[in-house]
Structures are given as C-alpha cells and as structure tokens.
C-alpha cells in the first residue's frame, strides 16, 4: 500500500473520530445539560459559539507560529501551514459571528450591534480574508512566503486586543465567565460539556488544518511539475 493511501486512510479515520466527538458533545449539550436560569434554552448555542470563537483565536496563534517559522527557519512548507491556519481561522470566525448573531437576536433584541467584541471579531474575519487575498495576489516564491509571514504575525497581534476588548470597552457582550479571577461562574456540569465541545472543536480544526496543508503541499508539487 502506498504512503499516500495510508495517509489518506489515517486522515479519514482521524476525521471520523473528530466528528464523532463533536456529535457526542453537541448531543450532551442538547440532552443532558440543565437549562440556564436566566436565558432558558437559548443559551445552548454557547456550546457552538464559544468553542468556535476559541478555535478562531487559536488559529491566529497557529498562524503566528508558522509565520515565525517561515521567517526564522526559511521553510516554505511552514508558509503553506500558515495559509491553511488562516483558512481554518476564517471558517471558525465566520461560525462565531453567525452563532453570535443568532444568540444576540433573542437576548439583546438585535441581530447585530457595533459592540466592541463583535466589531473586533468582525475585524479578525476581515484580516483573515485580507491575508488570504494577499497570499493569492502574489507570485509563488520566497518573497511571498516572507511577506505573508510578516502579515500573519501582525494579524496574530490583533487577537489579544479582541480578547481584552470586553474589559477595556463599554460593551453589551458579557464579560469573561470561564477564564477569570476567582474561578468560573458556570455550573460544573455546563462547564464540563463546554470543555468537551471545546476539545472536539479544536480536534476538528486540527483535522481541517492537516488536510488543507497536505492539499496545499500537493498543489505546490503539481505546480512545480508543470512549467
């Protein structure tokens, strides 16, 4: 059996496991966690929204790491991984914005408001999109890898500002309730389910990242073969 077929099989198996874990997390969130005292059943979207947001922010960290590796290690493969991280980051940022909007309608009465956290998350989506457009607009080569890496580092710098925006600016968005001084304000059974959803979301993102980076490497090899 060739290496490629073996790799594909391993990858498919990993993907199935990730989505199974995600399904278990969502099923647990819908069936076995209690309702929220104030928000009732609506709050359950938290099990998609918060893990997506965390994964979107983590993707920026991955983008930063691979960008640094590109610049310091002069590694063209790291540039492909950085691009894959930006693509995964964009998908999860869009999921975060969509689920946040759906959650905002019944709780705040509006689909969208120019709140600090919402605006900065939207800014992150624009930056991921800008990075990907920028990457596509340049001719392949070490110059593109270096410039895209520099941009990736700057985008990653934006993420702490987004995270801290809720405490710095006046905002409708609730303050951090999981990672905060004095411990989490969530009920332990809710927190456990949320952590399960978070882990499954990160696993799905890792699966997507590896799959996309592998595809990009294949694409690069093909481009090198065809003059």
């Amino acid at each position: 059996m060739s290496d490629t077929v073996q790799h594909d099989r391993r990858h498919t198996l990993f993907g199935i496991l990730c989505f199974l874990l995600l399904a278990v997390g969502w099923l647990w969130a819908l069936r076995f966690t209690p309702s929220d005292e104030h928000q009732g059943e609506v709050y359950r979207i938290i099990y998609v929204h918060v893990p997506s947001a965390f994964t979107a922010f983590s993707s920026a960290g991955i983008l930063c790491l691979f960008s640094l590796w590109t610049l310091l290690g002069r590694n063209s493969t790291a540039g492909l991984w950085a691009k894959a991280a930006a693509e995964v980051g964009l998908i999860f940022t869009l999921i975060t914005l969509a689920t946040g909007s759906i959650w905002g309608r019944p709780t705040w009465g509006v689909w969208w408001t120019w709140d600090a956290r919402l605006t900065t998350t939207f800014v992150l989506a624009l930056l991921y999109a800008g990075y990907l457009i920028f990457y596509s607009s340049m001719a392949p080569g070490s110059q593109r890898d270096r410039v895209a890496a520099a941009l990736g580092i700057i985008i990653a710098i934006n993420v702490p500002i987004i995270y801290k925006s809720v405490t710095w600016w006046r905002t409708l968005h609730q303050p951090p309730s999981i990672v905060r001084e004095g411990g989490s304000t969530m009920a332990p059974e809710m927190l456990a389910t949320l952590l399960l959803c978070l882990v499954s979301s990160l696993c799905v993102a890792a699966w997507m990242l590896v799959l996309r980076a592998y595809n990009l490497k294949l694409q690069q090899k093909l481009e090198q073969l065809v003059p």
């Binding site: 930056l127 999109a129 457009i133 920028f134 340049m138 110059q143 410039v147």
Partner: peptide
C-alpha cells in the same frame, strides 16, 4: 509586489 495593492492596502490598513 502584490498584484492587487489598490484593493488590498485599504482592506488590510483599516482592520
């Protein structure tokens, strides 16, 4: 060295 700098510059500068 970007082929779309007129569009990309504001797209990245403003966010």
């Amino acid at each position: 060295r970007s082929q779309a700098k007129q569009i990309l510059y504001p797209l990245l500068y403003f966010p």
